[in-house]
Design a protein around this nucleic acid. Sequence first.
DNA 1: GCAAGGTC
Length: 894
Amino acid sequence: MIKVLNVAEKPSVAKSVATILSRNQLRVRDGRSRYNKIFEFNYSINGQQCHMLVTSVTGHLMEVEFEDRFRKWHSCDPADLYTAPVRKYVPEDKLDIKRTLEEEARRCHWLVLWLDCDREGENIAFEVMEVCKGVNRNLTIRRARFSALIERDIHEAAQNLIAPNQWFSDAVDARQEIDLRIGASFTRFQTMLLRDRFVIDSAQDDRNLVLSYGPCQFPTLGFVVERYWEIQSHEPEEFWTINCTHRSDEGLASFSWMRGHLFDYTSSVILYEMCVEEPTATVTKVQQQEKLKYPPYPLSTIELEKRASRYFRMSSEQTMKVAEDLYQAGFISYPRTETDSFSSRTDLHTIVQEHQEHPVWGSYAQRLLDPGAGLWRNPSNGGHDDKAHPPIHPTKFSAGESRWSQDHHRLYELVVRHFLACVSQPAVGAETVVEIDIAGERFSASGRVILAKNYLDVYRFESWGDSMIPTHVQGQQFIPATLTLDSGVTRPPPLLSEADLLSCMDKAGIGTDATMHDHIKKLLDRFYVTKDANTRFSPTNLGEALVMGYDDMGYELWKPNLRSLMEYDMKEVSVGNKSKAEVLATCLQQMKACFLDAKVNKVKLLEAMAIFFNRSDRSNGDDSSALGENVRPCGLCQEANMVLKKNRDGNFMVGCSGFPQCRNAVWLPGPVLEATITNNICNSCTPGCIGGCDETLRQLIEICGTGSRVQARGRPPTTTPSNGPPTTTPSNPQRSNSRQAPCIYCYQTGHASTDCPSRISATRHVQSHGMNQQNGESSIPCSTCGTPCVLRTANTANNRGRKFYSCSSQACNFFVWEDSLNNGSAPRSAPRQNISSSASNPSRRGGRGRGVQNAGRAGDVTFVSATGEPISGRRCFVCGDPSHFANACPSRGS
DNA sequence: GCAAGGTC
């Protein structure tokens, strides 16, 4: 009888394969590794009787590493790591598996490889082959190709064995080698360059800090930094929108402007005024239609991580840890899968049946199985299939185990509810959209009534709002209860959440479903990013400085393109279009050139780090001689010295070495080519004067202003010193005078918001357009701002001669028709309710404005209504001064 | 001390 050694990628697969092939008639014995059992049984392959031994590895059996003489960090120039010999070897913790394979292979005739059918699996197959052939050269080697652990697939695979695919394996070899060489060279380079030169305060012991670089971790960091920069450089922009409401017996309907919003105030006011003049609304369209909200696709790893993060704020790392636990205990299926569609052969009903007894969702499971309820629906297909694992689904019923943590309970519940949702009908709603026309401007309001919740009954994590809208009929006319011109300001997008970050990585092909959470954790472990309570990521100074340094070199080493290109090449290798050697040669040659260039431009990294960190006295750097010279004691914190530095743009600054606790700094104008410290002390001022008595420099500062710190990327200092204003030095007179709150309209200082020239002209335009001011008396106080109102007469077409009160403040557009105040019975063409504008009245906007989501100019922008006050917490992104916005930053003049 | 990819 032929003895066949079968090897699977993991113990669970070995067990499944053995169980299926033996029809559960098998013997089990231990191997040398406690996890990797050996199953024995007889089986016929193509009519040939075989004695089968089925065992497993645990993923890769081998690792790739540099030869010993290159392993010590100081053993060679990191550039040598692009050519240093590497070897594949079985690490210590896999030696017992290797011995099992060797012992069994010696006694076998055939080796059949049951590794996962992807590139990594193929590579592991070649590792197994190498070990087995090492002890038995006469082995006949075959590959089993299967896509699911079900009877038909496994038997088919066993009867149709094929040859291993060298190209697939080669692609992984190339990836491994490239990752190692790039990762090790850049990690050693940047760690040895930066760690000892700076006091990196994030690390408790920065002597042991490793500043790692990796082709997956850096693009992941890049996503975080890029979003952060986007937020920092966002300049709030005011916009205007017209809203109106209609009150009827059934309630209030809120209509929003179908133009969305305009950024031009004058245009908005003109359109608004047209509406005010002819406020009769005509219903132009009433549309009712059924809307469906579909259940999610079957659960893949990334979706599991994203949803656990969104619903429970669990980190992706914790999610995978708990999922692995549940999987090991048999409660859920294999948790590392890209597949989001169920095979038609999966018995979905049986899985639902198991949950009928559950105290919480059991009744829902019963309804699902009741054909009369009509709740069942075959799950939709998400379009991904890794050909190895089904979507994550419950495999064993549990009403909760006593040893489970809260996270175990939550995750199991998510998996079960998600599964039940997948086999349920979509929620059904009836949506009503009403459109109206006021003076040619169109507005719409919508409402929704949920007719059947269906899957939402079990998937408590999702909701679908119910909102009633009073009945309207086409052609109906009404006078709005309110018609307002509201304003808001654009807001930057939020920081990336963990779910966002996973989506970015998924989209760019960074990492795999099984490793993405590792890359995120690595960024946290390396102190490159922090995560707040809302699972949103910010770069640390360290993370930002590293990205900034490479960005300044002009390299996109922190962007996902590099990985994408590598992936493309790997694909070419795996289909035989390119050879492993060819891809390795070109890729490593390019990366080495890039590395050597980075070494030449290391000053960019040093400069970026110098923005955020103090120099360390451990430094023996060769590039610091021109930097860090003491000028004088810092007059602000009186603790540290002011030192002469050069920033990353090549500009000089004299900054407090107590940074970031103290941010005292003088920025010398860009045209200054050289700055040195001399022993000369001028006669006209006290020691410590910087440039104030140097007439040439004084004029330069007048002409050019002072440079900003990181103006291009818009990174503000993160804190302002507690013991004084950010920076008030003789060289920056504009900044020292800018403590007055800026105008909320133009963000300039020098005038109050109520006196903003831009508003005055806009208001005047409105007045001249439609209304004549009378020399009326101030008879009532403005209900908005309290300023006395003036009685005026309208001379517009529809309201000529009609009187209204309007606020005498030019910054407040409140007005009210006189006749509407008297008895509430308005003339025929007049509105029944007050119609007032709040456009230029800051104090009213808070109560009027509507939050508008995702309607901004640039991508993922959120708008909210303005409060009328300068937005608290917002500060100039250029210099960090809260007294003005970026548009008015004195430094921008240069 | 370094990467990323498998896995218990």
